[in-house]
């Protein structure tokens, strides 16, 4: 971070390589579109470049960056008009497809999972992603989301419960 603060592009590239993908995917799963995710991930990286001087190392760089991303995603979600359409229609359509072999079957399963994730609330997606994909600790997630650690634990519990419910509705609950 000190090198970035001094204007070192190589150091910035290292941070970019290490975190851009994680932040992009995280933003993608929360926002549900590539353009929004790209914008958020780019803004986070710009913020890292501009704000590296302010980074005091009290938390991990990942915690700091995800904290920025969480705030930007929350703003973006607030700014957007509420989504319309029947989410169940997609699942019904998907359910009608015939699974011919394992490859198709697993691809279908992953697609169902993506659809199920989209139906979760922002809070539930946040905690699931930060735990399952980003591999962060309870303490780090609490810092990033601004919640007490016990809230993180119970939120994860309810997020999983909701995800299980959706997947069962979609007919794939038993696959887990």
């Amino acid at each position: 971070m000190e090198l970035i603060a001094a204007g070192d592009h190589r150091a910035f590239r290292e941070i970019y390589d290490r975190y851009y993908k994680r932040i992009y995917l995280y933003s993608y799963r929360l926002l549900g579109d590539g353009e929004g995710a790209k914008e958020v991930a780019n803004e986070v990286m710009m913020e890292v470049w501009r704000g590296a001087k302010k980074f005091r190392g009290e938390s991990k760089p990942s915690t700091w960056m995800f904290g920025i991303a969480v705030n930007k995603i929350r703003k973006e979600i607030k700014r957007r008009p509420p989504a319309h359409g029947d989410p169940d229609a997609l699942e019904k359509e998907a359910g009608e497809k015939t699974m011919q072999d394992d490859v198709i079957y697993h691809a279908e399963l992953r697609e169902q999972m993506r659809r199920a994730i989209k139906r979760l609330s922002r809070e539930h997606r946040e905690v699931l992603d930060l735990t399952y994909y980003q591999g962060l600790s309870i303490k780090e997630i609490a810092e990033i989301t601004g919640c007490p650690p016990n809230t993180v634990k119970t939120r994860m519990f309810y997020a999983r419960k909701r995800l299980g419910g959706i997947m069962e509705e979609m007919g794939i609950g038993g696959e887990l």
Partner: peptide, 12 residues
């Protein structure tokens, strides 16, 4: 399943 679903998204 969550991780495999995430991996398929292309990264710009």
């Amino acid at each position: 399943l969550y991780q495999s679903a995430a991996e398929e998204i292309p990264i710009p």
